[in-house]
Simulated assay, not measured.
Amino acid sequence: MNPSTDDDPSHRTGRLTAAEEEPLTALADIEAWKARKHYPSTLFAGGPVFGAAHERPDGGWELHPYFAGLAPQDARDGLAAHLRLLARSATDRGDDGAAAEYLAAAGRLDREPLDAIRVGAERFRVVRAERFIRMGPDGPEPPRRSDPDAGAGHRGSGDLHASDDPAAGLVIHPAEATQDGAAGVLRVELLAALRKKGTVPREVHEDSRLAAGSHPGGVLLPATFMAAEREGGRWRPHSTGTAATPGDARDGLALHLRVMVPWQQDLTVAEREVYKRAADRLDEQHCDELAVAGRHFRIVRVERLVRVGPEGPEGPRPSDADPVPPPLAHDPAAPDEDDSPPPEPDERTRRFLALFEEERTRRTRL
């Protein structure tokens, strides 16, 4: 890690608080120390995630809901939507000038890939978090008993939307630190974890090295969760995204078993029934391990670290994948949009839609 040239060390740590802050329970800290023993290794869990934040008048940066974008543009789109909500609130209180400023800023985000924007005296930015998992002899760490989880009535029922984001409303204070105990030790470990040369493209390694110098501090966000499968002695995630709670991750795995597996593998009715029973077991038992048809699945705990520098939390890096442009970005070379109706879906697509609709109907009836 490259040392900072700034003489003021205050930005080397970060404080994480919430609007209604709750102290860490003794159980959570005990479990965190146990995790260090049983899952001693920490590995990168795919690519980073992105969210939006605004600077508070009293200091620090408050995170917006749904800190789960897989590319910076996902966070920009969310920020544009947030600004439009602020415009609506300004209109409701009769402040048409503020409403116009918010709408103008949202319009810029629709056209330009901006990672920071100011509206009057308010500052907003896109924030980057690196993801990690703990590994042990038996594989990746599952959820802990102290991890907040959706109620039993949520699992396998209701709509297909995720739970509330546990990071929403948390405030990153660059100049203070309150993450102690096992969380503080983990934070220091993850800050030292850089993308190794030769394991990633050169620009990714170089950006990782530069970030250690420009944003030497950091804070841990609440953990998120994903489903993983063991194949040939190795574990691989089922998707690039993560869920807010273990229950949401189980719901995603159940959806995979009821919809994606039958569609991808063109299963017969009898073969589908095996996976449907496994998904039912997942819903009923709320388990974090599941074996079905010779396959082994696990719900995995994912840590998130936001690097922090003198000016606040780190934003996107030049090497971060950002494949989709802003929704209204205009490419002069692009042809005009085709107004003709979309083609009829083929048989395979119709089968997928039927499976998904069957699952949606099942959940709404519970």
Rank of each mutant, 00 (worst) to 15 (best):
Leu24His: 15
Gln264Glu: 15
Arg351His: 13
Val269Trp: 12
His296Val: 10
Leu160Ile: 12
Phe297Gln: 05
Ala152Gln: 13
Leu43Glu: 09
Leu114Asp: 04
Leu210Asp: 14
Asp115Met: 07
Arg295Trp: 01
Gly241Thr: 14
His54Glu: 11
Leu85Asp: 08
Gly94Tyr: 04
Arg93Lys: 12
Gly252Arg: 15
Gln264Ser: 11
Trp33Met: 10
Glu271Phe: 09
Pro57Phe: 05
Gly198Asp: 06
Leu282Asn: 03
Glu289Thr: 08
Trp61Pro: 00
Tyr275Gly: 03
Arg118Asn: 07
Gly315Arg: 04
Ser163Val: 06
Glu359His: 15
Gly136Ala: 04
Pro325Ser: 03
Ser4Tyr: 05
His38Asp: 11
Glu55His: 14
Pro323Trp: 00
His82Asn: 03
Ser214Tyr: 14
Asp266Lys: 10
Arg202Ile: 12
Arg301Gly: 00
Lys276His: 14
His82Trp: 10
Pro65Phe: 03
Arg365Trp: 11
Ala52Lys: 01
Glu289Gln: 12
Asp280Met: 10
Glu22Cys: 08
Ala354Lys: 15
Glu357Ala: 15
Phe50Tyr: 12
Ala87Phe: 01
Ala254Gly: 13
Phe132Met: 02
Ile117Val: 04
Leu191Gly: 00
Glu55Phe: 10
His238Met: 15
Thr268Ile: 04
Glu284Leu: 14
Leu353Gly: 11
Arg351Leu: 10
His161Leu: 14
Ala321Asp: 11
Gly139Val: 00
Gly247Arg: 04
Thr5Gln: 08
Ser208Gln: 06
Arg281Cys: 09
Pro222Ser: 02
Arg258Asn: 01
Pro216Asp: 07
Ile30Pro: 00
Ile299Gln: 01
Thr17Glu: 10
Ala99Gln: 01
Arg350Cys: 08
Glu358Asp: 13
Gly97Thr: 13
Glu31Lys: 03
Gly247Ser: 12
Leu190Ala: 06
Glu189Arg: 12
Pro9Met: 05
Gly151Ser: 14
Arg93Ile: 14
Gly14Arg: 08
Leu70Ala: 06
Pro262Gln: 02
Gln179Tyr: 07
Thr13Leu: 11
Ala244Asp: 04
Gly232Glu: 09
Ala28Gly: 08
Ala152Asn: 08
Glu176Val: 15
Ala100Leu: 08
Tyr102Arg: 02
Glu130Lys: 04
Leu70Arg: 12
Thr199Asn: 11
Asn2Asp: 13
Gly136Lys: 02
Gly107Thr: 02
Thr13Lys: 12
